[in-house]
Structure formats: structure tokens, C-alpha cells
Design a protein around this nucleic acid. Structure first.
Lengths: 262, 262
DNA sequence: TTCAAAATCAACAAAAATCAACAAAACAAA
DNA sequence: TTTGTTTTGTTGATTTTTGTTGATTTTGAA
């Protein structure tokens, strides 16, 4: 949306998103600037909707209030729920899955609680703990060292576990979709994990909400592996025409939001 | 979702969800603000449906079925919350911890969200995902294959990760305490994990609520390793006299819910 | 029904946070 | 270096929140 107006913008936003709620005082002490500076910087951020201000504190718009804190969980929530619903219908009881990390996958994991006897491999601790507690499921957590903002793992053992698996579907996500470049993400390790999961899976499900078809603020540059013939794309609105050619070989599922409430 | 109206909204909601039911009094003492402030803040929260108010208390709208809440977590909930509070006070920012699985440990993990810069090793996917998302924490998930009722791992890699660690505290639990036999659990793998965690830790914290001092319906038969001199026992009521001798060498912290206030 | 205890509410003074304006400091270009 | 511009911290006025007090309502028990 709007460009940063101060050199502190990024750090403040990051800290607020991380902590959920911080007082202006606290933040000014942590960052070693006056409280007035924090206020000056945060005013435009609040106006552009990047964060919320309450008297005495700053609160993140991104962080959920619930314990499972995923930084982008509340962004486009309804779309993600609708997409999750569709994915949960594609998957049948007894299927085996590889699930990547990301907020859409977190919703899908929630929705998959309805399914039974699932075999799941994932590098997301959140997905793992969500599905492990369903009796009858068989869940493997891939990886040891967890990334601190989303609890995902990309260490060597994570790849070993994924590569050893053979699953019916892998469930992938992306930060952006581009008509020519395909699906893009920000980090190399995410691409590598997607490659590993695709190679272990008979079929891939790519889940992206409509916002991913628009240009992003922070441009992702790394290409996810190309989807294969018959792979599945799940989204909440029909993709723009520009994508028609590149999605021609895919099985596209569109879930309008009103199809699912709850 | 409606945006918070006060800097306390977030914390109140978290505590209410965690405790299930809290009186306004209790909350105001725990948070160090007046009861009137709690009322003022909770009124809009109740109107937006984030929690419910009844005369005398606030009650969570989160059902026990919600993902982060294990069903067993509602058993003796107050005691576990009180114990978790005490443990979270013993642990300081920057400490390193090994945390076992179990519902008490799940509460402790929730409470430890207040701490910063923690290094955590755990074989519970729930604990891992709870603490991994706190910025600045360094969390390792020990193990790959997850047990289906609680999302804990006891495979070879779990032990390898725990054995490689060196931590300030390990946080352990038990199904029952016996004056002569010590702390007992149901499964051998839990004992082995406790041994591994104790060996990796400078000091151990055993967290058991009062119900564990009574005979259990399903008798656990396997003995946890003996606690060492100066190890810490956290419980919610003073143990019966029969335990006096066996706890003599321990640093016993008792947090009765009312004693803790003030 | 009644009463007594406890919880809630309303109102006001005290405390804290915010804002606006200005001076000091930092910075960049010449 | 100097100048002009921008950013930052400080001050005091203003606004919002907080705790206290006392009145009102609710609860539970006679």
C-alpha cells in the first residue's frame, strides 16, 4: 500500500506484529528513541491500516488473538476458510498428505480435522500438532529446528523425512501467482521443500487466494516448481484471464465465499 | 473480528480462554489493575462476542473442541493454570528448557509465552508450535513420528535431539505421586524421555497438581527418575504429610489459587 | 417474600498518555 | 567548513484512562 515514511517503520511494524500488543513506552525503550518518535511514526502506519492504535499501546492487525499465532492468519480469512473447505472435500478419509507451511495450510489443517485415518507429513509444527491430536491419524513432523515466526522447519532432517514419504497429495501454497513465471515465494528453502513434497506426491494441490493474483507489496522472486498435468489449483475467485493459458493443464476448483460460512 | 479497544483486551482474552472461567476480582489482581478497569475493557469484548459475561465472572467462548485445547486440559484446569503461573515465574527470559508432553506442560507452554528469548527442546508438537511462534525464541522439536492422542514423539530421533541438548531446566510431569515409589507414569517411553531430559538439564522442575497425590483410577506403574537435591516441585496444594520425607530434599513451590493472589 | 453479601454501575479526581509546537541535533549538499 | 532541510527530543496543554467512592443491582439463603 503506502511506502514507509520513516526508517523505523519496518522495525516497529515487525515488533508490533511479533508481540501482538506493545505499549508505546516499552517500544520506545527497546528501540532507544523517544515515545514521541514512536507516535509520529506509527500515526501514518495506523492510518494506512498496517497496525492499530489504542490508547497506551499499539496492537498488530496481522496477529490473531488466538493462541495459534500466525502472522498472516487474519488476512483474507474468509477466502482461506473457503479454500480450506474445498481442499478438505478433495481429500478423502485414509489419504496420505504432505502439507507445507503457511497460513492457508494452517486453515486447511484445521478443516482436515473432519477427515479420519490420515497419514500426514509436514514441516509445520502447527499443522503437525493440529492433526496429530485426531485419533487414528498418523502424523510425522519433518524437521527439528523451528523457524521463529511460523514454527516451520527447513533443516536437513526435514527434507529427509519428506523425501522418504510417498503420499497421495501434497498441499502447497505461494506468495504470489504470475501469468508467466508461475507461483512465486520469498525464500529458497520454501521452493526446495515444495520440490521435495511434489516429488513425494502423486498429485499436487496448490491453494492460493485471490489476493495472490494481484501484485504484492513485497515482491517474491523465487519460482515454485511447475505444476504437472492434472494437478489441482484451489482458489476463491476465478483467476484473471491472463492466467488462462498457464492454468490450462490444471484441475481448477473455485470456491466462492458464500458457499461456505462457519 | 472487531479490533481491540484497550491495551488489556488481548491479555484478558487470552487469560479468559485459558482459564475457562475467571472472576473479575481474580483477573484484576492477577493483572494488577482495578476491577473497574476489567469491567470497562470486557464490556465491548462481551458485546462483540469475544467472551461472555455472567454476574460474577467472565467465561470463555472457546469450546474445548478448539484445536489448541486438549480435552484433558479441562480437567483440574484451575490447578494447572496456577501451577503454570508459578513455573513461568521461576523461568527467566533467556533461559533454556526441555519440556515434556502432557496437559500440565501444555498450560506451562501457554504461560511461557510471556517470556522472551527462550531456548526450548520438546517432544510435544503442541508445546513446540506454541512457543516457536514467539519472536526471539529458539525451539527444537524432538522427534518425527507423533503419537496420535497428544502429538508427542518418542522415536529415536526424539531422544537424539534431547540428549544433544544442554538446558537450564527440564519441565516434567507425572500421572501420580506415591510417597515411597516417587512419581509414576503409564508408559515406559515417558520414563525414558524424562531420564533423557533430566540428564540434559542442570535442574528439574516437576509439575503435578493435587489430584496426583490421590490414588488414580488407572494405576500407573512406571517410576520416573528420582529428583535430585535442589530440584523443584511445583504443586497447587501442600502435599499430604506422607510425602514430607520424600520431598525433603526438594525446593517445593505451592501455589494455591488464593495464596497466589497478592 | 425478606435480608445480607457480593457484584456491578456511575461519577469524579488523579494519573497517564497523547498531541502540538518549538528548539536541538543530525544529515546532506555545496 | 557552511547552509538548508529533515529528524528527533522536550515542554506544557489537552485528552483519555484509571482507581476510588458510594449508590444500585443481582445473587443466594433464610
Amino acid at each position: 500500500m503506502t511506502s514507509p515514511t520513516s526508517k523505523y517503520s519496518d522495525e516497529i511494524l515487525r515488533r508490533v506484529d511479533m508481540m501482538g500488543t506493545v505499549t508505546v513506552q516499552e517500544l520506545s525503550q527497546i528501540m532507544g528513541v523517544s515515545d514521541q518518535t514512536i507516535r509520529r511514526v506509527t500515526r501514518p502506519l495506523a492510518e494506512s491500516g498496517a497496525l492499530s492504535k489504542v490508547h497506551g499501546a499499539l496492537v498488530s492487525n496481522k496477529s490473531a488473538l488466538d493462541p495459534p499465532f500466525l502472522s498472516r492468519m487474519n488476512l483474507n480469512r474468509e477466502a482461506k476458510v473457503a479454500i480450506a473447505q474445498v481442499v478438505a472435500e478433495i481429500v478423502k478419509d485414509g489419504d496420505s498428505l504432505a502439507i507445507d507451511t503457511g497460513s492457508t495450510s494452517a486453515f486447511i489443517a484445521q478443516m482436515l480435522r473432519e477427515r479420519r485415518e490420515l497419514t500426514v507429513v509436514t514441516n509445520s509444527a502447527f499443522v503437525a500438532s493440529t492433526l496429530a491430536m485426531i485419533p487414528g491419524n498418523n502424523v510425522s513432523m519433518a524437521g527439528t529446528q523451528l523457524r521463529d515466526h511460523d514454527g516451520a522447519s527447513f533443516d536437513r532432517s526435514a527434507f529427509q523425512v519428506v523425501e522418504r514419504a510417498r503420499v497421495d497429495y501434497c498441499i502447497l501454497s505461494a506468495s504470489m501467482a504470475h501469468p508467466d513465471k508461475g507461483f512465486l515465494v520469498h525464500e529458497q528453502c520454501e521452493v526446495e521443500m515444495a520440490v521435495a513434497m511434489m516429488e513425494s506426491a502423486a498429485r499436487s494441490i496448490m491453494a492460493v487466494d485471490a489476493s495472490k493474483f494481484q501484485p504484492q507489496e513485497r515482491k517474491p522472486a523465487l519460482r515454485q516448481p511447475n505444476l504437472r498435468d492434472g494437478d489441482i489449483l484451489v482458489t476463491d475467485v476465478a483467476p484473471p484471464d491472463a492466467f488462462r493459458a498457464s492454468f490450462a493443464h490444471l484441475d481448477v476448483h473455485i470456491s466462492s465465499i458464500d458457499a461456505k460460512i462457519g
